[in-house]
Simulated assay, not measured.
Amino acid sequence: MSAAANQPTRRPTVLGARGIGAGLVVALAAVAILGGLVIPGDPLAQSLTKALLGPEVTAPLGYDHLGRSVFHRLVHALRLSPLIALAAVAAAGAAGLLLGTLAAARGGWIDRALVILSDALLALPGLLLVLIVLAMVPGTAMGFWAGLSLVLWVEFFRLTRAATRELLASPAVEASRLLGFGPVYIFRTHVWPEIAPMMLTAAAFGTATAIMAIAALGFVHTGMRAPTPELGLMMVELLPYWREAPLALLSPVIAIFALLLGLTLLAGSRET
């Protein structure tokens, strides 16, 4: 009776968390896509006479220490970091899904070699691996994409390998093989429908992790190079002026907090 009584109260909580997460992500995406159209402006344009001034119609969040519109820099930063993160997650997810399925299906030396490779990469701190790649192509979106993809594919690989191994041994898959169906049909019909929710959850967490990594490296001056609008770089640039322009500093802080919270709520609600 207690289990039945608890069941109706759980689903509204999950839907509420998912709704809040989706609302935050959609709101920030709308700012990133429509913000520059509603209030046109150049994120790189400087006017030292407006340095650290408060909000006005053409700059709703005020100006930074170089007289650049914080709003327009935030709009472009909300495009850059999520796009890099989504591209990295897409590449890592595709690689992890392909290699994880291959390892589970083939086994033998292929499985052992891929497991050793993933364990070797997992032994390295993620940010260190990204920094190594950025040392080769410093301060570029391509460097972030490559480094984050190398970090994130391991998680997708491990999840896919563990789940697919059990699915491929199931009676339904064996029956499909006996009927002459190929690996593409088996994956599309039996494997993907089962692992899709888990992969989408991992993708949401991976996107949040990638955005946080980009901001963290920008905050310590090892990420995107100035004057590129990027959330971590904006925070470190505005930190010395927090007394004179607190709104300018809080804008990227609140934006990245809301974005990470939204993605985490979406991933957590899927997992529940």
Rank of each mutant, 00 (worst) to 15 (best):
Leu15Phe: 09
Pro12Arg: 10
Leu121Arg: 02
Ile110Thr: 07
Val130His: 06
Leu15Trp: 07
Leu28Trp: 07
Leu78Val: 05
Glu230Leu: 07
Val184Thr: 11
Ile39Cys: 03
Ile110His: 09
Gly62Phe: 08
Glu174Thr: 12
Thr228Arg: 08
Thr272Asn: 15
Gly93Val: 04
Glu194Gln: 15
Arg73Tyr: 05
Phe219Glu: 03
Arg161Thr: 00
Val70Tyr: 04
Ala141Asp: 13
Ala208Val: 04
Val154Glu: 00
Arg106His: 08
Ser251Pro: 03
Pro43Tyr: 09
Pro229His: 04
Ser118Val: 07
Ala32Gly: 07
Ala175Arg: 06
Leu122Pro: 14
Leu131Asn: 09
Glu56Trp: 02
Leu124Val: 10
Ile211Ala: 02
Ala204Ser: 04
Gly41Cys: 09
Leu34Lys: 06
Ala94His: 04
Ile33Pro: 00
Thr209Phe: 05
Thr201Phe: 14
Leu150Trp: 01
Phe71Lys: 01
Gly23Val: 02
Gly36Ala: 09
Val38Gly: 09
Arg112Val: 11
Arg225Gln: 03
Ile195Thr: 12
Leu150Gln: 01
Met212Ala: 15
Gly67Asn: 04
Glu155Pro: 10
Ala215His: 01
Val154Pro: 00
Thr160Ile: 14
Val220Arg: 02
His221Pro: 10
Leu265Tyr: 05
His221Asn: 07
Thr272Val: 15
Val25Ser: 04
Pro171His: 02
Gly268Ser: 05
Leu78Gly: 01
Trp192Asp: 14
Phe187Arg: 01
Val184Lys: 11
Trp145Asp: 06
Met199Trp: 00
Val57Phe: 13
Ala77Ile: 13
Ala267Pro: 04
Ala27Lys: 00
Ile84Ala: 01
Met136Ser: 03
Ala45Trp: 02
Ala202Val: 08
Ser176Glu: 15
Leu168Glu: 08
Val70Asn: 13
Asp64Leu: 08
Ser69Met: 15
Ala135Gln: 11
Ile33Tyr: 10
Arg79Pro: 03
Arg73Pro: 05
Ala17Pro: 13
Ile110Gln: 04
Leu178Tyr: 12
Arg10Cys: 10
Thr9Asp: 15
Leu150Pro: 02
Phe71His: 03
Val89Tyr: 00
Trp242Ala: 10
Leu152Asp: 05
Met199Glu: 15
Ile214Val: 12
Asn6Pro: 15
Ala226His: 14
Ala258Ile: 01
Ala175Met: 11
Leu263Ile: 10
Leu148Pro: 01
Met199Pro: 08
Trp145Lys: 00
Leu52Gly: 14
Leu124Asn: 07
Gly262Lys: 01
Ser81Thr: 10
Ser149Thr: 10
Ala87Cys: 07
Leu265Val: 00
Pro197His: 03
Ala245Asp: 07
Gly19Asn: 13
Pro252Cys: 08
Ile116Val: 15
Leu260Asn: 09
Val154Asp: 12
Val14Leu: 13
Leu129Glu: 09
Leu80His: 12
Ala213Gly: 12
Ala87Phe: 05
Arg11Phe: 10
Tyr63Cys: 14
Tyr63Phe: 02
Gln7Asn: 09
Pro171Tyr: 02
Ala203Met: 03
Pro229Tyr: 10
Gly107Lys: 02
Leu266Glu: 09
Ala123Gln: 05
Ser81Asp: 11
Ala120Gly: 14
Ala169Leu: 13
Pro197Glu: 04
Val173Thr: 03
Thr222Ser: 15
Gly16Ser: 14
Thr264Cys: 11
Val133His: 11
Gly41Met: 13
Leu233Ile: 04
Leu260Gln: 10
Ala248Asp: 08
Thr228Phe: 08
Ala203Asp: 06
Asp42Ala: 07
Phe257Tyr: 02
Val236Ser: 07
Pro240Ser: 00
Trp153Gly: 09
Leu61His: 11
